[in-house]
């Protein structure tokens, strides 16, 4: 367990996203109005920076590039999305937003990467 302070609660406006660097790990903080969430900073589709491409509305996060969408609270896929969002564990202590970073979360942008090439082409 490694809880790290990311930012202050009023560093991120309601219904918006802001990216922070936490000891070299990029973390995207979302303010849902009543709660915060923490994700890896890039869209799981084509590595867009969600801080720039992301739109928060009604509890949904939309990447404006190809309209992949997710439930902000859970990271579940909606609409066109083909991969869920990953989440860091997050807690708020008074005014501080803290995230539990065991290791940096990153999306697997290559399909079938678990397979070796022999299996891949079967």
């Amino acid at each position: 367990m490694s809880w790290k302070r990311v930012c202050s609660a009023n560093d991120v406006a309601a219904n918006s996203l802001k990216q922070f660097d936490v000891d070299g790990v990029p973390v995207l903080i979302a303010n849902l109005g009543d709660e915060f969430r923490a994700y890896p900073p890039l869209c799981p589709h084509m590595e867009e920076r969600l801080e720039e491409s992301g739109i928060c509305e009604g509890g949904l996060l939309t990447c404006s590039k190809h309209l992949w969408q997710w439930e902000m609270r859970t990271g579940e896929m909606r609409g066109e999305a083909e991969k869920p969002l990953l989440l860091y564990e997050l807690k708020q202590e008074n005014d501080d937003v803290l995230v539990n970073i065991e290791k940096e979360l990153e999306y697997e942008y290559e399909e079938d990467s678990e397979e070796d090439d022999d299996g891949f082409w079967d």
Binding site: S53, I55, E57, T62, K65, H66, L67, G79, E80
Partner: peptide, 23 residues
């Protein structure tokens, strides 16, 4: 295009499948 998509999601609250564009 990015601005228009923001308008359509934030203001029109359209679901993504009713927004048509080719990138």
């Amino acid at each position: 295009v990015d601005g228009a998509i923001r308008t359509l999601i934030l203001d029109a609250r359209l679901p993504a499948d009713l927004i048509r564009y080719d990138k």
